[in-house]
Amino acid sequence: MTTENLVSRTHAEVSVGDELPPLAIPLTRTLIVATALATRDFQDVHHDPRLAADKGSPDIFMNILTSNGLVGRYITDWAGPETELRKVAIRLGAPNYPGDTMTLTGTVTAKTTAEDGTPLVEIAVVGANKLGNHVTGTVTVKLPEGAEA
């Protein structure tokens, strides 16, 4: 692992209104099943199309632990390995079905301070697929402080 991989964004470098580069995630059937298993979610709707259909869904769909994980990954991909996630709050809408693509976008919405004085950054995140917004949420992170600009 080279040091470049360890470079992280600092609190001072981030401004309200900053937009994160979009991240497009192809929703393969393999991804949906592999992530369901990796999150220990064995609900049939995440791997068995016929049983998913019995429950009113046209196909298997991504589980919420994965949506949560991908939102977390999106933030740390952008901010770097020093990032500490403090809060992830998500709401699910249009399901992530196999064959679609989810594109995550994010905007820095606030720079705040925790009760203990820790400087925090809030990012609004949306993950959209062709049916609409799969996930909308807010992520709160602590970044290395960095030099004030």
Partner: peptide, 8 residues
Amino acid sequence: ATNCEQEY
């Protein structure tokens, strides 16, 4: 599942 709110 429809909502998940986690604090770490």
